[in-house]
Structures are given as structure tokens and as C-alpha cells.
Amino acid sequence: MSAPEPRAARHLLSVADLDAAAVRRILDTAVEMQEVQRRQVKKIPTLRGRTVINLFFEDSTRTRSSFEIAGKWMSADTINITGKGSSTSKGESLRDTALTIAAMGVDAIVMRHGASGAAHQVARWLDELGTGTSVVNAGDGTHEHPTQALLDAYTVERRLGSLDGRHVAIVGDVTHSRVFRSNLLSLAMLGAQVTVVAPPTLMPSGASAWAERDGFTLSHDLDAVLAGEVAGGVPDVLMMLRVQRERMSGGYFPTPREYTIGYGLTRDRLAAFTAASPHGVICHPGPMNRGLEIAADAADAASSLVLDQVSAGVAVRMSVLYHLLASEEGASA
């Protein structure tokens, strides 16, 4: 065929690389991938002979290990490289590190980096050289974390059936959250209504224009949102964001205690949410600051999907690797 292949087929840098049909395809395949997770012998031959490098310049437990497990269960060879302990600590540039790895003939680089846009940059360098290596963004600064958004959507859909018409409240450190930015895109594609709740200091500048353009609601009052006093009514999903103290130079809120009083999912708020939204669920991308943005009671509540999210992470990443790497023809129906 003469039709050009969609560029999105090679890399997953942003949820915006996908359309609604591609998101659906990834989520549907993930359902079948989760079946592999329940087998006695967790191994399928799908990516036999493929090599996936996890290149992580920031700390990670669940993302890195779930990408590694996902690759291994599909018979790909997976290798982990961390910023510490690699030639980066000898002063090698990101470009040289990426080109070195690609020159070894790997099929994909799963990359986490502290700088927003790092994965895009690496993908562009590799495309210029025509290496054919796929890049998967596993978190770049405060920009995006597409596989997290996909697994959040997957987890909620498994519990609630569909996200279409559901009301999702995203609460917390919005400014520093790449999880928030990716989720905003995927939730819109899946038809959910979104309310963003944050203290004024942690709301990104220009948020009101952004909200107007993309059709979500802003609020500084978590209790009002939980009571359903915003468009969309009582939320079906509470997505709590981690307070990213490592990205803060101070001054965003006076004390942790004050943050918890205003924006934490405390025991009292959990009770209010459970009463107002009996089927409602709670998500957190982890790692959790228990007692800061989420109380232990909420993290361990029956409505908490935190561990389901971790479990879904492997299945969704298997699906992403399958759709990116299995074919040399790109994705189709």
C-alpha cells in the first residue's frame, strides 16, 4: 500500500501519539495479557529475539520492574541501565548514551529522565540516524508518563466497566505531575469528565485557559468536589497525586500538615466520599506518602485500586510493547 505508516507506530512518547482507537486496542489487548499473569507458566513467545533496554535516570520501583517483567514474559531480552552506575556518571551526554545503546542493535529503549522532553529528544536523534529503535517514554520530568495513564484507565475500567461519562477528580500536586498530564489526554479520549483539584500554588500557571480549551473543571476546594458541588457531581474516581517533594524548592505550602488538612484524602474525607459515591474508587500512581496526600485508611480501603494499578501495570506494558514491537508493519485494527 502507498499510504504512509503512522509515525505513532514506532514510539510512545505521549498519549497524544495515540488516537481513541489505538488506546482501545492497547486496553483490550491488556485484558488478554493479564490472563498470562494468572498462568502457572508466565511466558509467551511473542517478542522472542527482541531486546528492550530500560534506561532510567530517575529512581523507580514499579515502572521499571513492570516493564522488565512485561518484556521477559513476552520472551524479549530486557536489560536495565540506571543513570547511577552507567557512563553518564563519567560525564557522557544523553545523546551519546542513547546512540551507544541503539548502536548495539536494540529494538526499544524504555526511558525515564528528569528533564521534560528527554524522550522526544532521544527519539528524534534515533530517527535522524534511522536506527529503527522504538522509544517508550516512562516518565520525562513534569511532562508525560503515558503508560501510567493507560494503566490507570485500564484499572478503573476493569472495576467500573467504562470511563465514558464518568467523573474523575484529579487531586494534588498538579504542577509537577506528568501522570496528570498524560491522564488528562487519555481520559478525554475515553469520554470521562475531569475535575482538577489543587491548592492555588500547585495549579500550573495558565490552567484556567487550558481548562477552558480542553473542557475540564478547576477547583481549589476538595470538600466541595467530594460533595458534588461541581459540574459532573460527585466523582466516580478520585485520582490522588503524589506530592513531589523532590521537585519542590520550597514555598508551595506552609507545612505538610496544612496540605493534608486542605487536600489530603483523610479518614473523614474517605467516609464522605464512600457515603456520597458508594461505587467510587481511589487511585494513586505510587509511591504514596501515607499521611500526607492519602491516609493509610484510604490507601488500604476496599475502594482503593492502588494494588490493582500495580498489577495492571505489567499487563498494560505487555500490550504496549506488543503493539510497538511485534510487527514491522505498524499497528492496524
Binding site: 483490550d28 489487548t29 503493539h323 510487527s327 508493519e329 499497528a331 492496524s332 485494527a333
Partner: peptide, 11 residues
């Protein structure tokens, strides 16, 4: 798999 566009897995 390599020669075909990827298909969604079935049940």
C-alpha cells in the same frame, strides 16, 4: 507477527 500489522488479542 513481524510481517503483519499487529492485531488486538482475542479472548
Amino acid at each position: 507477527l513481524r510481517a503483519q500489522p499487529t492485531r488486538a488479542a482475542q479472548e
